[in-house]
Amino acid sequence: MNDNLKYILRFLFFLALQLLIFQNLNLGTYLAPMPYILFLMLFPCTYPAALLMLWAFAFGLALDLLGTGIMGLHTSSLVLVGALRNILMKTVTVKGDLDNHMVPGFSQFGFARYSIFISLCVMSHHLVFFALESLSLFLFWHTFARFLCSLLLNVFLILLFKKTFFERGR
């Protein structure tokens, strides 16, 4: 299958998933399910950061336009993830591990490294997301709790999704 077509299909899949299911899932104040971050994690390791950011921007914008959230919030945090993904990937892997068209995953990185990688990405996303959403130090601990709880939830969700749907046979 053509790579770009694959990306577009994934784009639509994650968008629909977020808009139709996770956005409407009311898990309380502290849990904001946002597994769509996985969308960016499925690009090959050597995928250019600039293109990744454009994908992130498009996805975030679509989510902001179609969703019920605050305009620009998803866009901003997702663009950051797009910018940081490749850097974080280089940080968690040993040099020479990254092949040309390899997609980051459990079998490629190992469970621990991949989990750390995902955690760091989600963390950067959530930092921007919750910081921009509150945009004040008022209720700092409340915001921090939301950040932490959502982080745990989303890392779990992403790892689950990855394992279930996007892990090729070894």
Partner: peptide, 25 residues
């Protein structure tokens, strides 16, 4: 540098959107 510029541009658009469309922000 180009990647950084692109990042800044996209972020600027996002933040402008954020500021223009939400009362609290």
């Amino acid at each position: 540098l180009l990647v950084l510029l692109l990042f800044l541009a996209l972020q600027t658009v996002a933040v402008v959107l954020l500021v223009n469309n939400s009362y609290f922000q």
